[in-house]
């Protein structure tokens, strides 16, 4: 299976006889460049706006190079007394960190059970796992909210963390199961002969060998929790519990009292996107792997 955008081209669906090749190649590069421009220019636009003075934002045609370059916009965006971004950042880290850990632990354990253990009802339950992938979250939205109310968890971080320790979601279970099935079964037998328990097998043999699956799951889990909006929107009410997504919403709602201060808003948005972009540049391979596992093997 091809796993990376960096892998060599195996099957160029080559167009045209050799005569037209040069022309079509040139056309291809022009098209690619144009597309790349359109895909990248929003980022440039965001950076440019984020560094501009308020007055220069409302200029048309826009000036692409900010003069002067106002790094202070980042400071200003994060020091509004009604939007404590330090706290939002901390809350987001806490939620994302603990939820990712929970999701990895429980999904890998469950995936391990489906992939490496033989037990009554396993295949039926796995069908249910797959079926829950098709269930839209809206169906359980209201009852789960009521459940959280009964537990007294409204306006706390718990509803955004605890559920992920219980199974971690069908996609992640599926991902771990698919990966763990590729690990040779002889390893289990060897361990069993050594008299090792099931949990030991999971923790000491299978999990350490599941590095790529863990990395892929960690990335997708991180993205999901970092960018989550509807969860925090529903469960978090006090500003002191807000995440970055809700913090951006505050800035959007109050920025300059009716006058949108786009430079500050773009600075804050850029900041929120940054960890995701950095993660992408350092672990591109796993991003692709996750999508492809989901898309082609699924």
């Amino acid at each position: 299976m091809a796993t990376g955008i960096n892998t060599a081209v195996r099957n160029p669906a080559s167009f045209g006889p050799r005569a037209g090749r040069l022309l079509s190649q040139t056309g291809l590069y022009v098209l690619l460049s144009l597309g790349a421009f359109l895909f990248l220019v929003p980022f440039a636009w965001m950076v440019s706006t984020a560094l501009k003075e308020a007055g220069d934002v409302m200029k048309f045609p826009p000036e692409w190079i900010p003069q002067p370059v106002l790094w202070g916009n980042f400071v200003e965006a994060f020091t509004q007394d009604y939007a404590p971004f330090g706290i939002f950042f901390k809350n987001t880290i806490v939620i994302t960190g603990t939820a990712v850990i929970g999701q990895l632990l429980s999904a890998s354990l469950v995936g391990f059970s489906f992939a490496r253990l033989r037990w009554w009802g396993r295949d039926y339950l796995f069908l249910i796992v797959l079926a829950t992938m098709m269930l839209p979250y809206q169906v359980t939205l209201v009852p789960v909210f009521v459940l959280m109310k009964v537990l007294g968890w409204i306006d706390s971080l718990l509803p955004l963390i605890v559920p992920f320790y219980l199974g971690g979601g069908a996609f992640y279970i599926f991902l771990f199961r698919q990966f763990m099935m590729t690990i040779p079964l002889e390893l289990d037998d060897a361990a069993r002969i050594d008299g090792c328990g099931t949990l030991w097998l999971y923790a000491r043999i299978i999990l350490p060998l599941s590095g790529p699956a863990l990395a892929t799951a960690a990335i997708f889990s991180f993205l999901a929790h970092w960018n989550d909006f509807i969860g925090p929107l529903i469960y978090l009410n006090s500003v002191s519990n807000y995440t970055l997504s809700l913090g951006l919403r505050i800035l959007q709602g109050y920025g300059g009292y009716g006058i949108q201060r786009w430079n500050l808003l773009m600075a804050a948005s850029l900041f929120v996107m940054m960890p995701v972009l950095l993660l992408f540049f350092f672990s591109q391979k796993y991003f692709i792997q996750g999508i492809v596992t989901y898309g082609v093997k699924g």
Partner: peptide, 29 residues
């Protein structure tokens, strides 16, 4: 992007990049 072209990895990265960001920040942008 499945053709024989130069800097294939770079091209693919460029086109893939926007799909990794999402949520409120993208909506505001």
């Amino acid at each position: 992007l499945n053709q024989k072209i130069r800097y294939i990895a770079l091209w693919r990265t460029i086109y893939f990049l926007p799909s990794v960001v999402s949520g409120v920040a993208v909506a505001l942008l």
